[in-house]
Amino acid sequence: MAHRRDGSGIGLIWGHRTSEEGELLCHHGSTRGFTAFAGFDPVGRAGLVVMGNTLPTTRRALTWTAYATLCALRGS
């Protein structure tokens, strides 16, 4: 695991975010008109996988929406 100065990290191309609510691990990517996101909260036992036939954009709407949904799931 490589750690950044802001406390986040990356390991095997999985993003690792830690906050007061705990940690989240996620991975996203896109190719040829398809975008995917997979993420989970290992302590809260919540996970989310999203796949869409959307072109990757600089806004990354699918990725940010999926991440926000995963953050909301951890509270339910």
Rank of each mutant, 00 (worst) to 15 (best):
M1R: 05
M1S: 08
H3F: 13
R4K: 13
R4S: 15
R4L: 14
R5V: 15
D6R: 08
G7K: 03
G7W: 06
S8W: 10
S8F: 06
S8A: 11
S8E: 07
S8Y: 08
G9N: 09
G9K: 04
I10G: 05
G11W: 04
W14F: 13
W14M: 10
G15E: 15
H16M: 10
H16R: 11
H16D: 10
R17I: 13
R17H: 11
T18H: 10
T18Y: 06
S19Y: 09
S19G: 14
S19E: 11
S19R: 13
E20R: 14
E20G: 12
E21P: 01
E21Q: 14
G22F: 06
G22W: 05
E23C: 09
E23K: 13
L24C: 06
L25P: 01
L25S: 04
L25G: 02
L25Y: 15
C26V: 02
H27A: 03
H27M: 05
H27L: 03
H28D: 05
H28N: 14
H28S: 11
G29D: 01
G29P: 04
S30F: 11
S30V: 05
S30C: 12
T31F: 13
R32N: 14
R32T: 12
G33A: 07
G33F: 08
G33M: 03
F34I: 07
F34C: 02
F34Q: 02
T35M: 02
T35K: 00
A36W: 02
A36G: 01
A36K: 00
A38G: 06
A38Y: 06
G39D: 00
G39M: 01
G39A: 02
F40L: 04
F40A: 00
F40N: 00
D41R: 02
D41W: 10
D41C: 05
V43Q: 08
V43H: 04
V43R: 05
G44S: 08
G44Y: 03
R45V: 04
R45K: 09
R45M: 06
R45C: 05
A46E: 05
A46M: 05
G47I: 03
G47N: 04
L48Q: 02
L48F: 09
L48T: 04
V49M: 07
V50K: 01
V50M: 02
M51I: 13
M51R: 01
M51K: 01
G52H: 02
N53R: 11
N53M: 04
N53W: 03
T54D: 05
T54R: 12
L55R: 15
L55A: 15
L55H: 15
P56Y: 07
T57L: 08
R60Q: 12
A61Y: 06
L62R: 00
T63W: 01
W64C: 11
W64F: 12
W64I: 12
W64Q: 13
A66I: 07
A66L: 10
Y67E: 12
Y67A: 05
Y67W: 14
A68C: 12
A68W: 12
T69E: 09
T69C: 13
L70V: 11
L70F: 07
L70K: 03
L70G: 04
A72E: 15
A72R: 14
L73D: 01
L73S: 00
R74K: 09
R74N: 06
R74I: 10
G75V: 07
S76Y: 06
S76L: 10
